[in-house]
Design a protein around this nucleic acid. Sequence first.
RNA 1: GCGGAAUUGGUGAAGUGGUUAACACGGCGGAUUGUGGUUCCGUUAUGCAUCGGUUCGAUCCCGAUAUUCCGCC
Length: 369
Amino acid sequence: MKIKYELLKNDGKARYGKLMTNHGTFETPMFMPVGTLANVKMLTPEELKEAHSAVILSNTYHLWLRPGEDIVAKAGGLHKFMNYDGPILTDSGGFQVFSLAKNKKKDITEEGVHFKSHIDGKPLFLTPEKSIQIQNKLDSDIAMSFDECIPYPVSYEYAKQSTERTLRWAKRGKEAFDNENQSLFGIVQGGEFADLRKFSAIETVKLGFDGYSIGGTSVGEDKKTMYKMIDDAIEYLPIDKPRYLMGVGDPIDLLEGVERGVDMFDCVLPTRLARHANAFTYRGKINLRNAKYKEDFTPIDDCDCYTCKHYTKAYLRHLFVANEGLGGRLLSIHNIRFLIRLMEDIREAIKEDNFLEYKANFIKKYLGD
RNA sequence: GCGGAAUUGGUGAAGUGGUUAACACGGCGGAUUGUGGUUCCGUUAUGCAUCGGUUCGAUCCCGAUAUUCCGCC
C-alpha cells in the first residue's frame, strides 16, 4: 500500500500529523537520518531504533553502483538486505549525479544526465525512468522523483529552464513508476525565485504525488533566502500530503521549517558532525576535541541517549584524539537522538499549542542568551 | 687521553652571510545542511646547544665550552 498522511493538528502553520507506512506508523514532524549506502554510517538498526528513529534515507545512485539494485532485489528488498524494518525513503540520485556532471551544459540533457562514476570514472547515464526503476527494485517505502538540485547562485534563465525540465522529468518518472507497495514524491525546485517556486509547486502538484518535497535548499544560500524558498513553495502544496524539506538538519533550520509547515527532514549533519567530534547540545554545538573537555567527566548533555547514559566528554574526547572509530559511533548515536528528541519536543509543543514559544526558548538557549 | 662528526620548535627534520627559518607529525581552534567513515581551513620557533669573536649584518664563518655518536690508544 501507499503511505497515508493524516493531519491531526495545526498550530499556525506548524503541523502535527501521522504518517502510515508499510513499516509502521510514525508521527510528524520527523527527522530522518541518512543512510546512503543502505546503512546509517557506523550505526546498526538496533541503535537507530533505540534512538527512536523512524524513516531513514538511502540512496539510489550509490546502491545502483554497488551492490546494484538487482542484488538488493535478490536479497528480498532493501529492508531485508540491511535488516531495517522501519520505513525507508530512497533519494533519486539526482543530487549526486549533478555534482558528478563536469560540464553542466553538455552533460545535462533533456533525456538525462551524463556523468562519471566516483568509484572508477566509468561514464554513466542516468534518466528519470532509470532512477525510478532502480528505486522500484530497491523496494523502499518512498521513492523520490529524479530532479536537478539547482545550484546557488544561478541566473533566472537557468533556474527557469531547469525547473521546467525537472517538471518534465517528474512526469516521466511517474509514468515509469511501477511498484504498488511504494509511494512516490514530487520535488519542488525554482531556485531562489518566488514565481518559479510557485510555478514548480503548482505544476508538480497537478501531476499528483503521494507527498511533496522542497528541494534546492541549503546549497550555499543564506538562511533568510532559504526560509523564503520554503515560504514561496509551501503555500501551494496540499495540506493532506506530507511535505519534506530535503537536506536540512541544523536544529534552528528544523524549527524554522516546522514553523513553515514542513513534516519531514533529512540531513547528514548529525552523523557527519559526529564523525568530526562535534556534538549537538541544548546550549549549541560543541567540539569534543577541545582541550577544555580533557577532564570533563560529565555526559555531553542532559540527554536520554545511550551515549549520554554511559559515557563522559573526557572519554569521548580521548577516543577522538586517539582516532578511535568508537568515538564517531557513540557521538552519532547522540546527535541522531538529539535531533529526533528535538522533533519529539516540537510535536508535543504543537499539540499543546505553544510551538512558537518552544521555538523561541530553544533558540535562545541554543545560541546562548 | 687523542682524532672525527653532529647539535635547528613538542617530535622528525629542510635551509640561507642580509626583509616573513620549508615541509611533515603533534598541539590549539574553526568548518561541515537530498554524505567524500580518518576530510577541509586557520594557527603554532622574535629563534637555529651555550658564551665569545669576525662582519655593516650571522642560525649559517672562527674559537672555547657542553652534550651525543663513531673510530684509535
